[in-house]
Nucleic acid binder design. Structure first.
Lengths: 134, 134
DNA sequence: CTGCATCCAATATGATACTG
DNA sequence: CAGTATCATATTGGATGCAG
């Protein structure tokens, strides 16, 4: 049973690593935050509860589809609560949950890092692109 | 010239918002961190310099293409330095730059948040999925 | 007003084979 | 060893029209 051992071991290592990646909390959170509209929507909600149309107006770049999708995803993760007022027409309000509020200091950390280092990052990019074009 | 004003204003607002998003440092950093392999590659490099094959071995889930792409992207952003030793065969070593080291505490913040809140997040997901299936 | 369905484009990721 | 090239698939994002 030594035949194929190397390939087998590689496959097993890969499967194990894939499960690890799937289970890794950090990676999970990063995937959520990495979505294009997550951070801006959360930021809007830190300003207070917002209705669907409020968000659409504040975020002119988002399509209706992505706004809905982002809100659903945040709701599913427990960051955002959705409450419907059955009037005519219906009124839907989105609010940050307590769990969602805990996202705020984290986003502040990211912002802090970003604002302090973006100049270096962009300088590096410019230099990289310049030397590549040479 | 009052015709189409509403639509025009919407288009302008969207264009302005798009530029804002593109220019936003936080969003920029989040986009980098959101890539599937960025965090794990950076984490490997916090353990010390690594050669290409070292990384491939430590990260059995990554394809050669994505490993190269991730490293190039990190190099372009100034987080990682690539040094070639012209031997036979060539030896390529990747190291975190000083800028890259500054990523470490940020990733630690993300990890801290993730580890403290992942249980609540997953509970929320389970509940959401359960009530949706009802 | 809210938001789903549909179709489409762009990007990210992956598998495989090949090269200096 | 350290990639590149190519092809294929998956995921993400967007535009439009329709519905409760």
């Amino acid at each position: 049973m030594t035949t194929m051992t190397a390939a087998e071991r590689r496959r097993e290592a890969k499967a194990a690593f894939d499960s690890y990646m799937d289970a890794c909390p950090t990676h999970d959170v990063l995937a959520v935050l990495g979505n294009k509209w997550t951070s801006v929507v959360v930021f809007q909600l830190t300003q207070g509860p917002r209705r669907y149309a409020d968000l659409a107006r504040a975020l002119p770049g988002v399509s209706a589809k992505m706004l809905t999708q982002t809100l659903r995803s945040l709701e599913r993760d427990g960051f955002v609560a959705r409450s419907v007022t059955p009037s005519v027409p219906v009124q839907v309000e989105y609010t940050l949950t307590l769990l969602g509020e805990r996202l705020v200091p984290l986003l502040a950390s990211v912002r802090h890092f970003a604002e302090h280092n973006i100049a270096d990052i962009r300088a590096a990019r410019d230099q990289y692109d310049a030397t590549a074009t040479d």
